[in-house]
Design a protein around this nucleic acid. Structure first.
Lengths: 112, 112
DNA sequence: ATGACATTCAACTAAAAGGTTAAATATTTC
DNA sequence: GAAATATTTAACCTTTTAGTTGAATGTCAT
């Protein structure tokens, strides 16, 4: 039984990780499947070291895990912690419910 | 050609706003109804000026709006932008539902 | 008009974030 | 074992964040 609670620090780390566009892009990339650090870094206009740091932030937030495979580090998405963020937001869903219907339509039409 | 409904800067601001526990607490307070800056600040162990700055961050993210009422500024929740964050997270929902399928249980137990 | 009240602004500080380049650490290949 | 590859670490820089205190602003009550 995996007990996941929304601790303050978890939400700090998770929302903090998602507050950066490079890190959100990395999550999107990893949604397509595991990738090496180098491959993840390639589309980004910054040094490999910078991307490596972003990946560390994502790992600290529990959003990715890194598997050592020879000299390559293969990253894969571990999206479960996002459910904590999702859960927090859900509390306030009632405040935008009118817009929520439109959002669902939008996601159904354009989604994935 | 990254087509996205939510603009980068919006998500940066929204997730960034939520990455801080004081600001999440302020959102929770405002979920109960509009409150003055002073009342909002009272439970927090920091100066009024600090809370005022946090409220400014929330306002910049579009999460609250402030109405001038005499010498009091009354803040009210404007949670609609949270649906953008919700929408972003929804894309990855499949990644944690596949593995855990426990979100609903989780929300039922801890949530509301 | 004076004073109390509610809030912001300004100036400052310390720490964290986001980036750089160069060197270090593994690991594979020749 | 030397060179090439993949990635991290270290040192550094600049900007942002989160807080402080004290002065300024605007409004209400007397």
């Amino acid at each position: 039984m995996v007990e996941r609670e929304e601790s303050e620090s978890d939400l700090n780390a998770i929302f903090g990780a998602l507050a950066n566009p490079t890190r959100r892009a990395l999550v999107e990339q990893l949604a397509g499947g595991p990738e090496s650090v180098g491959d993840l870094a390639e589309p980004h206009d910054m040094s490999l070291a910078a991307v490596s740091k972003h990946l560390q932030v994502l790992e600290d937030a529990g959003l990715i895990s890194v598997e050592k495979d020879g000299r390559v580090r293969r990253c894969h998405l571990d999206a479960a912690p996002l459910s904590d963020a999702f859960g927090w937001l859900t509390r306030y869903r009632v405040f935008w419910e009118d817009r929520f219907d439109a959002l669902e339509d939008h996601l159904e039409k354009d989604g994935q």
